[in-house]
Every structure is written in structure tokens, then in C-alpha cells.
């Protein structure tokens, strides 16, 4: 054959092909390419979150007051605990994944399958925890009044705790009597077929106002953060005036338009960023399940290399890496 093909004499030269400057396989390099581009997507979201936060630097919700719930410990305020647990679960799942990769290097099929199985379980626990976190966030617990200008007014009272006066939040439902409903929810089957609206709030602003009038201990708290890093609490007169003059609609829980925690952007970014991350975790669990069954039926054993576990592992660690940043910027900073 040598006589029929012109030899260019480049086979051993730098540009002749066959060079592997990174000493990594095509698949691994492409996974790194994907990870870099995905990292840029996530940093785009987080930087946009930072933008909105700097824009509302004096009125952004305080994460410690929003994420206070732990499953089975209803009614207790335990900020950080549950999300720290979630972070730990994800780090543990990263460890089991890297142990699976390590076992793959040693061609140890049974160990790879055990560690992959554990990774899937931890991943599922994480996705489940996130679903619970979302459900709690959407449900809300105190309710608030949104003003004409889109600001959020919350309610609370001063209580004695360890000899000090501390401000404690009060739920709207605890001091407001729901009156007769004048308006019913507009549904597609009752009105114009292409028009409907979301669930109506349980209370009107007028009902909240009369509840506030009847309970002289209850005060209004605005979004504005004062110099001590707490939200501003209005006096009794200011409270009544704020609700009467500016109150527009009662907000309970969170959706994409309004939430009881503060500016609407807060919930929007929460849903968008943790949702996008949760979707990544979910995809990662699906990938893990696929390669788990491939390991069980011996695909990689026959192929002579467990590199596929390593590539999926890279993706899985990346998801953990992103969570570390989401954790910092949503819950800590």
C-alpha cells in the first residue's frame, strides 16, 4: 500500500495528528468543555442575582428569616440547619462517586456498583429535600401585605424573651377575621374561556386593617434594613397608616409575581437558580442510574475500562460544585 499513497512525512510531527497534548480521552475533554460552558451559565444566573441584590441592597430579604424550617420540627425557627444537611448529603454523594471512579480504575465491578448505588440514593435524598424546601417556601407561614409600589409589609409584635424585648412575627391568620367573600375566583369554565386567574388570597387588605386596629400590640415591619442589620419596625400610628394608604393585596407564600418575604425578584431567583440546579441533580441521578445498570450487566467490564463512570462522575462533582456556590450566595451571604 505504501506505493499507492503519497507519504506526507508528517506522521511523527506536531501537526500530523495522533498527538494528545492533554493526555485525556476525547470523551473526558468534551465533558470538561461542557462543564466550563455550564459553569458560565450558572455564573450568569448568580451574577444576575448579585445585580438584583445590589440594586435592592437596603431591602433584600434576610435568608435566615426565610429558610428556618426543618422537617418534623414544625414551628421551630432553625435557620441553616436543613440546608447544611443538604450540602453535606451532596458532598457525601460526591465522595461515594469518586470512590466508584477509584474502584473503576481497579476494575472492581462489585465496589463500583455499590458506590454508584449509594450515590443514586444520596442524589435522590437531595432532590427530595429540595422539593420539600420549595413546598415550604411556596406555602409560606406568616403572610404579608403588598403595597401599591410593590413593597412588602409584614406583621409582628414585641414579646418578652429572657428579659429582653424581641420582635416576633405574627401570621395574618392569627389576627384577621375573614369576612364574606364578595368576589370568586375567575375560572375558564365560569367566565371567558381563555381567561382565568390565580387563587385569590384568603383575606382582603380591609380585613387585615380592621384586624390590625383591633389588636393594639401588632406592628408593621417594612423591607428596609436599618443600621443594625434588622428590618425597620414602624410605630403603631405609622403601621395603621401604611396599611390604610398603601396596602394593595394580601400575599401568602410565594409565586413568581409576589412573595411574602420581600421583593418579587427574591422568589424569582430562588425558583430559577435552585430549580435549574435541582434539574441538574435530577439529570445526574438519571445518568447514574443508566451507568449503574451498565455496570451491573458488565458493559464496562467487557469494554475493559470504566471511563464512563469517570465522565459521569465529573458531571456529578460539578453539580456539587455549583451547589457550594448556591449555598453561599443564597443562604449565607
Amino acid at each position: 500500500m505504501d506505493t499507492s499513497i503519497a507519504s506526507t512525512g508528517t506522521a511523527e510531527k506536531t501537526w500530523g495528528g495522533g498527538n494528545e497534548p492533554f493526555k485525556a480521552s476525547y470523551g473526558k475533554l468534551m465533558m470538561w468543555f461542557f462543564i466550563v460552558s455550564d459553569a458560565l451559565t450558572f455564573s450568569g444566573f448568580l451574577a444576575a442575582y448579585g445585580f438584583s441584590r445590589f440594586k435592592f441592597i437596603d431591602s433584600w430579604p434576610i435568608a435566615d428569616e426565610v429558610f428556618t424550617h426543618v422537617p418534623f420540627l414544625h414551628g421551630q425557627e432553625l435557620p441553616m440547619i436543613y440546608v447544611a444537611f443538604m450540602t453535606f448529603i451532596l458532598i457525601i454523594s460526591s465522595v461515594t462517586m469518586v470512590l466508584a471512579v477509584d474502584a473503576g480504575h481497579n476494575m472492581n465491578k462489585s465496589k463500583v456498583s455499590i458506590y454508584l448505588f449509594l450515590t443514586i440514593i444520596f442524589g435522590a435524598i437531595f432532590v427530595g429535600s429540595q422539593a420539600w424546601e420549595w413546598a415550604t417556601f411556596i406555602k409560606g407561614d406568616y403572610g404579608a401585605v403588598q403595597t401599591q409600589g410593590g413593597n412588602i409589609l409584614q406583621f409582628g409584635e414585641y414579646v418578652e424573651k429572657d428579659g429582653e424585648q424581641v420582635f416576633k412575627r405574627v401570621a395574618i391568620a392569627d389576627f384577621t377575621q375573614a369576612g364574606e367573600r364578595v368576589r370568586v375566583q375567575d375560572q375558564r369554565k365560569t367566565g371567558i374561556w381563555y381567561r382565568s386567574e390565580g387563587t385569590l388570597p384568603n383575606y382582603t387588605v380591609d380585613e387585615v386593617y380592621s384586624g390590625l386596629e383591633a389588636n393594639p400590640n401588632i406592628l408593621v415591619r417594612t423591607q428596609i434594613i436599618n443600621e443594625e442589620g434588622h428590618k425597620t419596625i414602624l410605630s403603631r400610628e405609622e403601621s395603621l397608616k401604611a396599611i390604610k394608604d398603601n396596602g394593595k393585596v394580601v400575599v401568602e407564600g410565594a409565586n413568581l409575581r409576589a412573595n411574602e418575604y420581600g421583593t418579587a425578584l427574591f422568589a424569582d431567583f430562588f425558583f430559577f437558580i435552585t430549580g435549574f440546579h435541582g434539574f441538574h441533580v435530577f439529570s445526574g441521578v438519571v445518568f447514574n442510574i443508566i451507568i449503574f445498570f451498565n455496570v451491573l450487566i458488565g458493559t464496562y467490564e467487557r469494554r475493559g475500562s470504566y471511563e464512563m463512570v469517570e465522565k459521569v462522575g465529573l458531571y456529578w462533582h460539578f453539580v456539587d460544585l455549583v451547589w457550594v456556590f448556591v449555598f453561599t450566595f443564597f443562604y449565607l451571604v
Binding site: F22, K23, S94, M97, V101, G313, H317, D320, L321
Partner: peptide, 12 residues
């Protein structure tokens, strides 16, 4: 996470 879990330490 990058250096040890993703084996960046061992790459070129």
C-alpha cells in the same frame, strides 16, 4: 472539589 474529586490535580 475540582482538584481532588474531579482529579484536576492529576491532569496536565
Amino acid at each position: 472539589i475540582t482538584w481532588d474529586f474531579m482529579h484536576m490535580r492529576d491532569e496536565t
